[in-house]
Design a protein around this nucleic acid. Sequence first.
DNA 1: ATGGGTGCAAATAATTTGCAGGTAA
DNA 2: TTACCTGCAAATTATTTGCACCCAT
Lengths: 134, 134
Amino acid sequence: MTAPHRGSRDTKQGAAIEAALAGTAEFRTAQDLHAQLRDGGVRVGLTTVYRHLQRLFDAGDVDTVRTPSGELAYRRCGGMAHHHHLVCQHCGHTVDVEGPAVESWLQRVAQQAGFSDIVHTIDIIGTCADCKRG
Amino acid sequence: MTAPHRGSRDTKQGAAIEAALAGTAEFRTAQDLHAQLRDGGVRVGLTTVYRHLQRLFDAGDVDTVRTPSGELAYRRCGGMAHHHHLVCQHCGHTVDVEGPAVESWLQRVAQQAGFSDIVHTIDIIGTCADCKRG
DNA sequence: ATGGGTGCAAATAATTTGCAGGTAA
DNA sequence: TTACCTGCAAATTATTTGCACCCAT
């Protein structure tokens, strides 16, 4: 049944937040999710929404991107491997991209420079086809 | 002489901000630029830095991206050939790396997704050989 | 002189944290 | 009962705006 997560209790709030995320494939902001839950009759605090999203992110269950206006948006991560995002700076439309080639390049240059314990971020921003046209 | 921009006066502050941007090919945050200018002896307010960056962006003279921590970073458009940095999180040691392979990969995935006017940032952070030993 | 430029301080806004009290196990 | 969870309110941080004053033209 409701088997939410190892190491965390099973609360209405947590279940509601995970359900809300499970219900869509889109990126949602914390504020957005909070408003939706409230409107749906779930009594939950904004703080709790932030905390659950943070926990889900740490557990690798959700991805995040920055919206053009600077907010952090979350989306459930269908167990997909590590990947990056192409973000349209005009409409915020995002496309997932995987880059085995890039990952191995990163490992190679890091190794050549004598670096270890590498972490990296790649931000790719541009104009999507729709916005180019419009 | 100092021919700054159509429609704007020629002030020390404006010139200093444009000079600071012209001096690097990297993305810089407003806070960052402000601190650098202050340290360099330029008396300028944070507000003014933000206003000039905004104006330069509106004029199409600079690009912007969001840093992972959510701040807006600005970079002058059309600069020299760029490169990325490997940064040691312990001692701050930095190594420049160029990646023709990565650049072309970026172009390819962007094109496949129908994106244009691509800009990107790649941050690579790890532990350098010296710190690994120590 | 005069209107745009400047910058301090206050206003926004997203997100985080302190803390008192609730609740799952 | 005992932690962990919740959520209000206050704190933080990046950015914007109000407004009185200054300076390039």
